[in-house]
Nucleic acid binder design. Sequence first.
DNA 1: GGAATACTCTACTATTATGTTGAATAGTAG
DNA 2: CTACTATTCAACATAATAGTAGAGTATTCC
Lengths: 218, 218
Amino acid sequence: MDDHRPWKDAVYGQFARIGKALGHARRLEILDLLAQGPKNVETLAHELAASSAAVSRHLQILLEAHLVTFQKHGTYVVYQLARHSVADLVHQIQVVSEDVLADVRELHHLYLTQQDALDPVNPEELQALMATGTVYLIDVRPPAEFAAGHLPGAVSVPLPDVADHFAAWQDDRPIVAYCRGRYCLYARDAVQILREQGLVARRSEITVRGWGDARPSA
Amino acid sequence: MDDHRPWKDAVYGQFARIGKALGHARRLEILDLLAQGPKNVETLAHELAASSAAVSRHLQILLEAHLVTFQKHGTYVVYQLARHSVADLVHQIQVVSEDVLADVRELHHLYLTQQDALDPVNPEELQALMATGTVYLIDVRPPAEFAAGHLPGAVSVPLPDVADHFAAWQDDRPIVAYCRGRYCLYARDAVQILREQGLVARRSEITVRGWGDARPSA
DNA sequence: GGAATACTCTACTATTATGTTGAATAGTAG
DNA sequence: CTACTATTCAACATAATAGTAGAGTATTCC
């Protein structure tokens, strides 16, 4: 039984390149953000509360693994996922984590389920509400991400604008907010703000991530 | 915009635990092998051509990431994947790799496509052949993996037994061999052996991996 | 009980990854 | 050309990881 070690080492070594690139919290977060649309280094650094040097470093690593590509626009370097399958991969890691690590489920519950007795709107319910027009669906992500793709029928109301947007609100339809995905807290925060203003607001369980490929071919 | 850094760091930190565990060629190979069925340390060490101390070490790391579980059977410690989603994750890494790394495609072609002018049998064709019974389908993986689940209608002929099994072969049906998946070379080797014996043999593109969940709930 | 087997653990060394700082590069606007 | 901005690079200190050899543990078999 002649062994094919050199070949196997080469093949699995290549797989490991991808694995290694996924072995850091910040890089996974970067990929999750890029799944929402292309972004430049500064934007990412701001979202991550990290130095741009550090983010740039992580982006180089992702680039070496060919998980992202970039384009230069003037002095800006805009990064994006190399393929849609990369977003699926990151998603699968999250699925496995929740499947397998009790800690993740707890963290998730802590922030989203418990505090958010906020009875979330499930996919079917949202669809029904949208069909009858008895809901005001808001996308609370940054405008650039809305522009890169959003749920049909949604209105862009970035989180920082939420309070103002609804200051003199008279419409009596319930407000439903959605954001990036399961690990994005924008929708939760939006609902909290709106409830403090005495409005009827709920968080959608459908997110851009769940909706999946509504966005244009990246 | 109060940042939820501590929560995000915790959540993505957990994801990164999984990512880190995937950041090594041998560990990915271990997971791929375990996707075929439970195995003990020695078996894995033999398949990987590595010391059992090293394999044990890697298994500890996979264990800490909760990607595998184990059971003690006498002096044997039998490891298995913690969930089926783990196999999907490893598969997704391979998909992304082929998608994104030209090197992997080349390595794959080098061994499987080129040398294997072996016109492989594609899924539809195999199904048709099986339906009419005009094929002898062999599973060339180790017997334990066959026992853990195999394609319907297949006969177990482990690679080391292939030459003997067909020594006095008279059946004129073509032989089709399959193995673990896209990166397993057993079927390729089997076909090579059989052709040297002057028999009609081909490699199946369907493998246990492609067939997916024919195997019992692991 | 004693030997054999299967696995894990402990040091130890070599290698690789991370984050920070400040400097270097490259493009843009005046 | 100069000042400015966005990004990357270089160099360092620190930490984590990989592999190996050999000791240690636990279970089975005789």
